[in-house]
Design a binder for these strands. Structure first.
Lengths: 259, 259
DNA sequence: TGATCGGCTTGATTATGATCAATTGGAGAT
DNA sequence: ATCTCCAATTGATCATAATCAAGCCGATCA
C-alpha cells in the first residue's frame, strides 16, 4: 500500500509532476495509495463520479465507451500514464469506463487534492494544462484517423507506429488481444482479420501476436502516415523537449493518457 | 482595431478569463487585437505554428482536418468561443485548419503572453486547465458519437440538441450549409439528404434551412440521446455552476471551443 | 491423451455508406 | 425576365464494413 521509492521516482519523473514543488508533490502522494488489480477489473464506470486521479504504474488498462449495448475502446494505456485527468479537474462524471487488461499496479491520488494543488502551485497547474493539451491533441488525431481513413489504412498506420515505438527491428508484438485492437481501431474482429489479410499483399506477415513488416516502404505507400495524425514520425531531434510532452496517443490511441 | 469595451466585457466574462487577476487580463488583451475577416478566410492552416490564441467574438467559424485530399469538419464554432488553446499551451503546430464561415470578428491574443500569464497567475492556469478539460471531454463525446452510432442516429441527436439549444419551440434553423453539417456529422452531403429523408418517418420536416420536429418523443426513441455523449440533457439545476464549464461541444460538435 | 473453451479466422450474406451522374431549384447577376 | 452558378436532392451503382454462421487452432485441464 505504501509506494516503493522506485515507483515514487517514476511518478515524480512524469511530465505532470516533474515541475511541481516538493511540497505540492508530497501532498499529492501523501493522500494517495498504490493498489494492485487483477486483469479484467473495472476501475471506474462510465457515468460514475470521479474521486481519484489514476496513474498506471505497471500493467495494461483500457478506456471504453458504451452506447445502446455497443462498446468501443477509446484507448489502451501503458505504464506510466495518468488517466481521468479531465474529469478530475472539472470534478465531473466519467465519460468512459476504465478496465484493467492485465494485472496492474495503479496509483490513486485524491481528486480533491489535485484541484487544491493546482490552485496553490501555478507550476503544477501549468503542467496539468500541458498534459491536458497533449491528451486533447491525441484525441484530435483519433477523430481525424477515424473520419478520414478506411479500416486497413488505420491498421497499417497502427502497425507502423507500433513498429517504431517497439524498436525491435521489422517486427512488433501486439500488446493485447486482437479483439481489443479491433475495437480501438473502430472495426469488428472479423474485419480486423480481413484487414490483416489485405496487408499480406503489402508485406505484412502475421503469426499469432507477432507481426512482421517485410517492406515498410510499400506499406507506407498504402498507409500514408501523416505527422498531423500519427505521432510516429519521431522527431529525431531533441526528444527531450516540450514536444515530447504531447502524448503519444497516436491516432491509434496506444499510449494515450486520457480523460 | 482597439476593442470596443462591450467586447472586452464579453471576453472578460468567459470562463477562461473570468477568474484571472485584473493585471493578467489587462496584459493579455493589451497585446491582443481585434480583426474582422470576410467569410471563407483561412485563419490558420493545419501544420502551421500557432502564434495566437483566437477568440471568436462575432460570426461563425469551423475547424477542419485533412488527409489524403479528403477533408472533414471537426467543429463549428459560435461566439463567444476560444479556439486553438491546446496548441498555444504547448507552443505546437496546429492540427486543424481554422476557417471563417461567415464574416467574423476575431480577437487574437499572443500565445507567448498566454503561456507567460499561466506561469504568473495560478488562477488563470487553473481556468486554462478547466477549459481544456471541457474541450477534451467534448472530443470524447465526438469519438463515441462517431464510433458507436450510425449516420441517421447522429443526425437525429444533432437535431434534438440544436432544438433545445435554440429554444424556438419545435423547430430550429441550421446555422450553416448542409454540406458543412454533413462533414461535421461524418457523412457525405448525399447521405445527409437521405438521412433527412429517413427522419421524415419520425416526424422531421425540412424546409430549406428550417427543420421542425413534430414528434420529439418518436425521434428520441430513434436517437436514444445519452448524457455521456450528448450535452443536451440540460441540467435545469444550476447552469451557472462549474458543470457549465464543460464545453457544449455536443457530440455533434456545435459549440465547441477547440484545439 | 483427449475434451473443452475461447479467440481467431473464413465464407456467405446483408446493411450501410460512398461514389457517380443527372436534375432540381433558388439566389444573385446581367 | 432570363441566365448562371452552386447547393441540394435523387437515383443507380459500387465499395466498405457489419452480421451471421461455421470451422480452426492453441491453450488449459482432467
Amino acid at each position: 500500500m505504501p509506494m516503493r521509492s522506485v515507483d515514487v521516482e517514476r511518478v515524480r519523473a512524469l511530465p505532470l509532476f516533474r515541475t511541481a514543488s516538493a511540497r505540492t508533490f508530497d501532498n499529492l502522494i501523501a493522500g494517495g495509495f498504490l493498489q494492485k488489480f487483477p486483469a479484467g477489473t473495472t476501475l471506474l464506470m462510465e457515468g460514475d463520479p470521479v474521486d481519484f486521479l489514476y496513474v498506471l504504474i505497471e500493467g495494461l488498462a483500457e478506456l471504453q465507451g458504451t452506447w445502446n449495448d455497443k462498446e468501443t475502446t477509446l484507448a489502451v494505456l501503458r505504464p506510466v500514464s495518468t488517466f481521468i485527468l479531465a474529469a478530475v479537474v472539472l470534478d465531473a462524471d466519467a465519460l468512459m469506463t476504465a478496465r484493467t487488461i492485465e494485472r496492474s499496479d495503479i496509483l490513486m491520488i485524491s481528486g480533491e487534492a489535485v484541484r487544491r494543488a493546482m490552485k496553490e502551485d501555478a507550476a503544477f497547474a501549468v503542467a496539468v494544462a500541458e498534459e491536458l493539451s497533449g491528451c486533447y491533441r491525441g484525441l484530435v488525431r483519433t477523430v481525424k484517423n477515424q473520419k478520414l481513413r478506411g479500416a486497413s489504412e488505420r491498421l497499417a498506420n497502427y502497425l507502423l507506429a507500433e513498429q517504431v515505438s517497439q524498436d525491435r527491428g521489422p517486427s512488433l508484438v501486439l500488446p493485447h488481444e486482437k479483439r481489443v485492437l479491433a475495437s480501438l481501431l473502430g472495426m469488428t474482429p472479423e474485419n480486423l482479420s480481413r484487414a490483416f489479410a489485405n496487408l499480406a499483399d503489402y508485406g505484412v506477415v502475421v503469426s499469432g501476436p507477432e507481426v512482421t513488416i517485410l517492406r515498410p516502404t510499400v506499406l507506407e505507400r498504402l498507409a500514408k502516415p501523416d505527422r498531423l495524425i500519427d505521432s510516429h514520425l519521431q522527431p529525431s531531434a531533441a526528444r527531450a523537449g516540450m514536444a515530447d510532452r504531447e502524448c503519444r496517443a497516436s491516432a491509434a490511441g496506444t499510449i494515450a493518457a486520457l480523460n
